[in-house]
Design a protein around this nucleic acid. Structure first.
Length: 234
DNA sequence: GCGACAG
DNA sequence: ATCTTGTCGC
């Protein structure tokens, strides 16, 4: 049984990055009651449109406003089921630029809800040895069992080949759910509790949004030559 | 064989 | 994933 968090956050000022950062910090203040987590971050990557062989820009956005970032050339184009092998090199490099490491990371993508039960969130968690929760916006495998309620906070299990591999969670009314799954060192129940705690009434939780924005910023800066065209090829 | 397919 | 323009609702 999953307990609903007692209170919801006020919507942040979405027009500014500081608004998002405040939302994350506020959420962590009330969320650390369900664990020993001190610092939360979001992780995401960005790339040029229709250029699945081009550089991958990774960002890890922490709740204190610091951002780890890196750019890498992926070893192969996008193939469903192999995303972790494309994104993890850049993500690990971004992690290494952080002076202070987070205790919990919300990764944009699947964790156990993967054909071989090892999505990008699992891979990242193992490589970094840190707790990771997978937050995906669409499905790679599995079907939602039963009916997902219309209300914010509604959940329904995602089943693949007889296993519950994730939980569909509605974070915004009249919006599609996100799929929360185990990444690393966290149970599905705890993962869902964290996502609910960190949510602010929008479809995607603030840490993932912040990481998305940060990764986009890295890509824009790279395109403008602000990084001197620096790309470490692995 | 056919369709589906995170980011 | 990313790009672009327009429309709808609070």
């Amino acid at each position: 049984m999953i307990e609903r968090p007692p209170e919801w956050l006020n919507p942040p000022d979405l027009k500014t990055a500081t608004g998002i950062q405040r939302a994350i910090a506020d959420a962590v203040e009330t969320a650390d009651r369900i664990g020993t987590v001190q610092r939360v971050a979001g992780a995401d990557t960005s790339m040029k449109w229709r250029d699945s062989r081009g550089p991958i820009h990774a960002a890890i956005a922490c709740d204190d406003g610091t951002v780890g970032q890196a750019t890498r050339i992926p070893p192969f184009p996008y193939v469903p089921g192999y995303l972790g092998f494309r994104e993890c090199p850049a993500l690990v490099a971004a992690w290494e630029t952080l002076a202070v490491k987070p205790d919990l990371v919300l990764m944009d993508g699947q964790g156990r809800s993967h054909p071989r039960r090892c999505g990008v969130a699992c891979q990242l968690g193992v490589l970094l040895d840190v707790a990771v929760i997978g937050v995906a916006k669409s499905l790679l495998c599995g079907v939602v069992a039963g009916v997902l309620g219309d209300e914010v906070g509604a959940t329904a299990p995602l089943v693949d080949r007889g296993e519950v591999v994730a939980m569909a969670v509605r974070l915004r009314v009249r919006a599609a759910p996100v799929y929360v799954s185990i990444g690393h060192r966290v149970t599905l129940e705890t993962a869902v509790a964290w996502v609910l705690r960190l949510s602010d009434g929008r479809r995607v939780p603030p840490p993932v949004r912040a990481a998305h924005e940060a990764a986009n910023a890295v890509r824009i800066a790279h395109a403008a030559g602000a990084d001197g065209g620096n790309v470490d090829i692995l």
